[in-house]
Nucleic acid binder design. Sequence first.
RNA 1: GGUCCGGUCGUCUAGCGGUUAGGAUGCCGCCCUUUCACGGCGGAGGUCGCGGGUUCGAAUCCCGUCCGGACUACCA
Length: 510
Amino acid sequence: MSVRVRYAPSPTGSPHVGNIRDALFKFLFAKHHNGTNIVRIEDTDRTRYIPGSEQDIFNSLRWLGIEWQEGMEVGGPFGPYRQSERKELGIYDKHIQVLLDSGYAYWAFDTTEELTEMREFQQVNKQPIGYFGGMWRDASSDAVEKAKQAGKPGVIRLKVPRNEEIVIQDVIRGRIAWDSNNVDDPVLIKADGMPTYHFASMVDDHLMEITHIIRGEEWISSAPKHACLFDAFGWSRPIFVHCPVIKGKDGSKLSKRHGDTKCLDFRSAGFLPEAMVNFISLIGWAPGGDKELMSMDELVEAFDLDGLQPSPGVFDMEKLTWMNGHYIRQKDISVLTKDVLHYVKSDDTYDYWNNQDNAARADELKRMRESFEKDAPYVDETILLEQERVQTLAEFGSACEFFLVEIPNMDQKAVDKWFTKPHVPQLLNGLLEKVNSTSEMDKDACESWVRNYAAENGIEKMGMVVHPIRVALTGKTVGPGLFELMSVLGTERMKVRLQNALQNFVTVSN
RNA sequence: GGUCCGGUCGUCUAGCGGUUAGGAUGCCGCCCUUUCACGGCGGAGGUCGCGGGUUCGAAUCCCGUCCGGACUACCA
């Protein structure tokens, strides 16, 4: 039997990295086994529906290269793939009737107040909290009819068997058992007629012939309910795989207060999909050796359930950042420049940095976007020179800034350190003279001029000539190799910068 | 409170009864070098949560204990 797995998110917001990591696992597993990955939308809670989140879900998946062969947007033989549509088709009504008829489900008419009161009672009496039958589990059909006649809103609950042991086999953790007396009767159909997750998801998993339920660890405690449901229908249970959660630095489940958690935020922050995929695949899973830098194809090749880990992992931004730097460096320059262009053109980028209260970064990136419009080949060259010096796409903004402005911002400490040396005015004037008389200087020409100058003036330490020129041209003490940088800048820009340095910053005259 | 899951350097992890407990990241140092970065080399960092067993031998198996986490909705 071929593998069929499903990614079944709720459209309640832009997906979280933990959720997307699970989606990645499912995709890798399906693809590794030549199976089918299905995307189904679980929108049974109308109150939590957020418009636009379906698109965020698809965008997150596509950004990372997670494919699906069946489901939303691509169709398939088991559609529709949106639960609200399946509800309209009567799929859940039909199935709940089966359970009602066979006695595995029952109507319950408790009010919200009654349920709250019940829980408070259980709380103070240190009892397990939950609905274990109340007055409705074994109510007579007359009582149920009467409540219906009276127009009382009711729900349908699953009649979990009592005095039994409920056992599931989890692929990662092995046997997990519950005393059924501790498993409460979950609501299957809500008062508004919509199915709950417990019901809709399991019915659909069966109908869609899902072989493996791969989901987060937070579902373990409802697994016995799901197992009972399958048993009640007489259906064979799929294989359960509960993946460990992803935690934040403080050890609790990753959430908003840990910073970025939405998958698409990472795109806006300047991370590459290759890095993101590689990094999140390694939280809770390992191929079983020392290898950790892997492409999507390699992950597909290496992925299997036995590499899954039971213990939760912490999302380590520093390691993600390192990995992103690795992928930036590894990238072909023609591809990289397109990525950067795309990044600085995207509105999401600016929304993101403005939300981060980092207007300066937004400005740098905006300048880069404008520069692309004016002189793309020039910007491409600056990207090449900064490629090995940045770790995210966003960092190109500040790394390339000095190239793109008319006059760079002069770092006062750099000026104080280097422009006070007595040989500097002559040096900068000499270079100015050179660029005035030359229209083009390639890297070698720049290098030989600098070296000759040093030799002719008896300067032994290259730093003594290199650093002042660097400060004059870039305003900084750090950056790409001087000769590369000079040749990319070109004589015109060098002229303007040298004049500015000599007029406004060089304090010692000769 | 209850149920369940988990516990190897700060972090991600390898390990499946015999290893000086390996790799990666981060940190530190050296080398390369005009700076930064990249790269190369090296270092610090783990009595494998703790306590008992089983065994000639345990991170690996068993029991207990502690700590952490998830769930505990007519949310998923």
